[in-house]
Amino acid sequence: MTGTAARPPYGRGSLGIEVADRSTSLAPPSEKASFGNEVDFYGKPVLGSQGLNQVGFHVFQTGENISYGGPTNMPNITFEINPNLAAAPATTYSSLVWLPAASPVTNAWSGYLDATTTGTWFLTGNAGTVTGCNLATPCPFPLLKSALNDGGAQPTIYTAAVGKGRDNMWIGAVDGLRINGTIYDFEAAGVRTRRAS
């Protein structure tokens, strides 16, 4: 792809993600890739005015990726969290994962995909079981936040990442990851931060 459709939404670079199918000895045998931050988000709240209120990214989705796993064969955003659920006080770890809806365009950069209003979210492990927002029954973002707000201590973030899980082959790119008021612009020399307008 060349021309304006191939230009990332920010700068000149983007975060390329490639995972292969049937390439490991695991079950399922697909690869997993994650690119994230284990420092800057540690201890930050999930809920409330200082919590996760703006999340999303731009994606370069290809027709081949759709042929590998359907229109929702997309990368995700994952926050490792302490869910602090009153209903499961011993559960101190879960992955909070956004599953995007299908990209509105293929073989071109999408507009901003807002994870707070599109797609669904789930929690891994016991937190998913307790809240009902698990991989089998993912929830819209407002319902997920309500399920986490069960009267226990406020859930907190450990890490944040963009990635692709062990389901289908995917070769594409992400740019302009937004977490609240900051946009992360992936460039060859590193990640630049921009203030969201």
Rank of each mutant, 00 (worst) to 15 (best):
T2A: 09
G3Y: 09
T4Q: 09
A5W: 08
A5Q: 13
A6H: 07
R7P: 00
R7N: 07
P8R: 06
Y10P: 01
G11P: 06
R12Y: 05
R12T: 14
G13L: 01
G13A: 04
L15N: 03
G16N: 13
E18G: 05
V19M: 02
A20D: 13
S25A: 14
S25H: 05
S25G: 14
S25D: 10
S25P: 00
L26Q: 13
A27G: 06
A27R: 10
A27T: 12
P29K: 05
P29N: 13
S30G: 15
E31P: 03
K32C: 10
S34F: 12
F35V: 15
N37Y: 11
D40K: 11
F41V: 09
P45N: 07
P45S: 05
V46Y: 04
Q50N: 15
N53K: 14
N53H: 13
V55Q: 07
V55L: 15
F57A: 11
F57G: 00
V59L: 09
Q61S: 11
Q61E: 15
T62A: 04
N65F: 04
I66F: 06
G69H: 08
G70V: 09
P71T: 11
P71V: 08
T72C: 01
T72W: 01
P75C: 08
I77C: 03
T78N: 12
E80I: 05
N84R: 13
A86E: 11
T91A: 14
T92W: 02
T92H: 13
Y93S: 13
S94Q: 03
S95L: 10
S95E: 13
S95Y: 07
L96E: 06
W98T: 03
P100I: 07
P100C: 12
A102T: 08
A102H: 10
P104Q: 09
P104S: 14
A108L: 07
A108F: 04
S110V: 10
S110W: 04
T117W: 06
T118W: 02
T120W: 00
N126I: 10
N134S: 12
P138F: 02
P138G: 07
P138A: 05
S146W: 01
L148D: 03
N149T: 05
G151D: 11
G152D: 04
A153L: 14
Q154D: 15
P155C: 10
P155S: 10
T156P: 05
Y158W: 10
A160W: 05
A161H: 02
V162C: 03
V162I: 15
V162D: 02
G163N: 07
G163Q: 04
R166L: 01
D167E: 14
M169F: 08
W170T: 06
W170M: 05
I171K: 15
I171P: 00
A173V: 02
V174T: 07
D175H: 08
G176V: 11
G176P: 11
G176M: 11
R178I: 03
I179K: 02
G181V: 01
G181A: 14
Y184W: 10
Y184D: 01
D185S: 15
A188C: 07
A189P: 00
A189D: 15
G190Y: 09
G190Q: 12
V191I: 15
R192S: 08
T193V: 08
R194Y: 02
R194M: 08
R195C: 00
R195I: 11
R195D: 02
A196V: 12
S197F: 06
S197R: 11
S197W: 03
